[in-house]
């Protein structure tokens, strides 16, 4: 981060936040996360390890002023993903693949994302289940082998991954919602697992309360997190808010990814969480992807956010 002498104007503060958000490498050792340094250096130092990628909020079909070319920026994000030196094992997409759940939007997403040549594990965002049949298109494409409206778990490299759905059957006045059936499944899914197994939970809407005034949280998220309390290393990856945010609570690290389509304002800094129009040359600094590295033996999980343009 470069220093500026012209005082802490809001613009400068935001630039610093952006850079900090993109450049910090997190490690989790013994459940206590610590910052290791700036991404590029860190990646160069640690070429080995199990890495996976997170992308989020592609919003295929979005064409409003905040980004008239959401397809183009998704293409750039995928191109960026292909340049990562330590090839990721797979990708997770934390929802809002489409803007309006249209078949053509899912088609566009598939066409572009498949260029990464990685397996992709999806969870739906609220924009992915607004077709006439409320999610039929999403489930037909991404729902194979999942339960309910698309939740599931799998293991990779000793890490247990859990994809949750918190965008279905939302209640008036509420936030994101998992529901009793999914929570019971989650409790059962975790039963009997060693507390030393690293857990990665991913869902669209943040499972922690970011800003309830804008609906950024999950009503029954605390119950889900309760089931994860005994685990030594828990990483929660979300999307939905189109900006990087991190929080650490006990053994749990919460992280939200940027969108590949358009930025949204920081909590409370605008009249609404709607798409934020920024100067054209600024847009790509606010869009991007995240790659997450797990180092065996050291129980490290490092999250690196990479903007489309530094």
């Amino acid at each position: 981060m470069t220093t500026h002498d012209d005082g802490p104007s809001r613009r400068k503060v935001l630039e610093c936040m952006t850079w900090a958000g993109t450049g910090v490498l997190w490690t989790i050792a013994g459940g206590v996360p610590a910052s290791l340094g700036i991404i590029d250096g860190a990646l160069a130092e640690e070429p080995k390890g199990f890495t996976f990628l997170q992308i989020s909020d592609s919003h295929m079909g979005f064409d409003k002023p905040a980004n008239p070319n959401a397809k183009g920026t998704l293409e750039e994000a995928i191109a960026r993903a292909r340049t990562i030196p330590n090839r990721p094992a797979f990708m997770i997409h934390t929802g809002d693949i489409s803007h309006l759940s249209k078949a053509s939007e899912f088609d566009d997403a598939e066409k572009i994302i498949s260029q990464a040549r990685l397996d992709v594990h999806y969870v739906p965002g609220e924009h992915d289940i607004i077709d006439e049949d409320r999610g039929r298109l999403y489930m037909a494409r991404y729902g194979r082998g999942t339960r309910g409206f698309g939740y599931y778990s799998f293991d990779a490299n000793g890490v247990h991954f859990i994809g949750l759905v918190n965008v279905v059957d939302l209640k008036g006045g509420g936030l994101g919602y998992l529901g009793a059936e999914q929570l019971a499944w989650l409790e059962n899914d975790l039963k009997g697992r060693s507390a030393s197994q690293p857990i990665v939970v991913f869902a669209h809407i943040p499972l922690w309360t970011v800003y309830p005034e804008w609906g950024w949280g999950t009503d029954d998220g605390a119950q889900a997190l309760g089931y994860l309390k005994r685990f030594g290393s828990v990483t929660v990856l979300n999307g939905h808010i189109h900006q990087v945010m991190q929080k650490v609570e006990g053994n749990v690290t919460f992280h939200t990814a940027r969108s590949t389509a358009f930025p949204q304002p920081a909590p409370g800094t605008a009249p609404s969480p709607g798409p934020m129009k920024v100067a054209d040359d600024k847009l790509r600094t606010l869009l991007g992807i995240a790659d997450i590295t797990f180092k065996q033996n050291e129980q490290r999980l490092a999250i690196v956010d990479t903007p489309l343009k530094s």
């Binding site: 607004i130 939302l170 008036g172 006045g173 509420g174 936030l175 005034e213 609906g215």
Partner: peptide
């Protein structure tokens, strides 16, 4: 008749 936004239920 109370209603809300099905995508953003904090809107009522």
């Amino acid at each position: 008749f109370k209603y809300f936004c099905g995508l953003h239920p904090h809107m009522t």
